[in-house]
Each structure stands twice: as structure tokens, then as C-alpha cells.
């Protein structure tokens, strides 16, 4: 009975609210891509630098960026809309190393939505000279 009344109340008063189903966290897979298409063996980001972060644009929560292995990494974040920005060192399968930068989702207007239980985001990196 209590459950039915609760459902009726929610229908009456919250028809405008869409509850995101599932967990409150999203497992996001970040895939790093170089303009040349070369394979990245490892990508390391210095999380101590203030500009290197994944940040929720609404609540301000920030997460350290894990090491990319074979061009990708996985992490759990609170579902939301995120700025992703960092500078890092990429080691390629050819043995070369590049300093790379990710700015594709670096502003609020270009932030990426992570609201499903799992999401894939491709990050197009810039190679720094």
C-alpha cells in the first residue's frame, strides 16, 4: 500500500524528473588516439599538475587520470558531465616518445556526458613539439 501511494505521489508531482537508472557511477573507458594513428603503448599523466584532470562541471568532483595501457584506461566516475583535459607523455610501439595534450573536452561547452552505466570516450590527442 505504502509503495503504491509512493508511486502515485511520484507520478503526480515529479513527472518532470527523469531518474537515471542503475548505479550512480559510470564505468568510463577512455581511448587515446594520435593524429598519426600510431599505437600508444603507455600514456602517463602527471596528476599533480592542476590542469590535468577529469572534472564534473556541476559538482566540481575531480578524478586523477589513470595510466593508459595500449591506448586506453578504465575508471569509475559519478554520473555527470565532465571536462577532460591533460598533458601527458605517450610511449609508442615504435619506441618513440611524445609529449601529448588532450583539449577536446577542456571547456564546459565541449564537456562530455557520462550518464550511462558504461561509456566509451575517444580522446583525440595533440602532439606537442
Amino acid at each position: 500500500m505504502r509503495k503504491i501511494l509512493g508511486i502515485i505521489l511520484i507520478l503526480l508531482t515529479t513527472s518532470c524528473m527523469k531518474v537515471i537508472p542503475g548505479d550512480v557511477t559510470c564505468r568510463v573507458t577512455l581511448q587515446a588516439q594520435l593524429p598519426s594513428g600510431e599505437n600508444i603503448v603507455a600514456l602517463q599523466v602527471d596528476n599533480s599538475l592542476p590542469g590535468n584532470l577529469i572534472k564534473n562541471i556541476n559538482t566540481g568532483e575531480t578524478y586523477p587520470i589513470p595510466v593508459f595501457v595500449n591506448g586506453q584506461c578504465e575508471m569509475d566516475v559519478l554520473k555527470g558531465v565532465y571536462i577532460i583535459a591533460f598533458d601527458g607523455m605517450a610511449a609508442l610501439s615504435s619506441g618513440k616518445g611524445y609529449k601529448v595534450r588532450c583539449t577536446e573536452h577542456a571547456t564546459i561547452l565541449t564537456a562530455v556526458s557520462l550518464v550511462e552505466n558504461s561509456e566509451n570516450v575517444t580522446l583525440k590527442l595533440q602532439v606537442m613539439q
Binding site: 524528473m17 527523469k18 531518474v19 537515471i20 550512480v24 562541471i57 556541476n58 559538482t59 559519478l78 554520473k79 555527470g80 558531465v81 564546459i108 561547452l109 565541449t110 564537456a111 556526458s113 550518464v115
Partner: peptide, 20 residues
């Protein structure tokens, strides 16, 4: 308590709510 996820646009649209 439900926190809404607001999108990146200047229209501030709600993408949904998280029960926190």
C-alpha cells in the same frame, strides 16, 4: 535526495537525476 545532472549548454537542461 536526487541530484540532477545538468548539461553543458547555456540552456541548463537536466539530463536526469541521481539518487544520492
Amino acid at each position: 535526495g536526487y541530484e540532477n545532472v545538468i548539461d553543458q549548454s547555456s540552456a541548463f537542461l537536466s539530463l536526469g537525476a541521481l539518487q544520492m
